[in-house]
Design a binder for these strands. Structure first.
Lengths: 113, 113
DNA sequence: TAGGCAATTGCGAATATTCGCAAATCCATA
DNA sequence: TATGGATTTGCGAATATTCGCAATTGCCTA
């Protein structure tokens, strides 16, 4: 019996739910990047980055390949950029709503009609 | 100083990272739904659902309103369906890749060339 | 083949999530 | 105003994540 789809989706989103992993995925969007460069870009200790990379690898969203003495990561497939765009749209909408609400509260400080 | 964008994104995805919350968002896509109906649809205890609804509310992705003796939830804005579609595309691509790899392994069981 | 850099793994402690149960709230209506 | 259904809140226990540090592995080059 297969894993219910909503559970697979939840695991997928949970996998995305860490700042370091988000940054890695963003850095990989323009093509393969060696771990060395990720380390230089992300303010995180090597073992810690490695663990986050392992999470991404296990989920299947990235693949890794040895190249000489270094290891290069790349997106496995699918349009991650598209997902990030969708997320950004929603985040923007949410923040805008909150902002609008704030404005509303500000302009009507005498209570509800 | 604002929260770094990648952290906001991570929090957003983490908020999505639970099966019950995914199901709620899916159920809300066709319009507002009272808690009662969510409870009937989702196999979860009332207090537990309520806590997940609180997570969604705090993040701002849904809003709630009292209607008589019941409470109705709805999506706050932004195109959540779009996000789900993007996620589904990536999940599909990932599963396809894995499937392809499996086929490959199956058809070449004599070892690497 | 010894030494060194790059990356990963193992593991324990700190922290965060999740869940169930009891209790509290909010409304409608008797 | 008392009763009852619907939802939320408050915790404590169980579980899962995250992080740092030591140790290990893989590969290049002296």
């Amino acid at each position: 019996m297969p894993v219910p789809l909503y559970q697979a989706k939840a695991e997928f989103f949970r996998m995305l739910g860490h700042p370091v992993r988000i940054r890695v995925l963003e850095l990989l969007q323009d093509g393969p990047v060696p771990v060395r460069d990720l380390l230089a870009a992300i303010d995180v200790e090597p073992p810690n980055l490695s663990q986050h990379l392992a999470v991404l690898r296990r989920s299947g969203i990235v693949t890794s390949a040895r190249e000489g003495s270094s290891v290069v990561y790349q997106l496995a497939g699918g349009d991650v950029a598209d997902l990030m765009r969708a997320a950004r749209r929603i985040l923007t909408a949410m923040l805008t709503d909150q902002h609008d609400l704030l404005e509303e509260l500000r302009s009507s400080d005498v209570g509800t009609p």
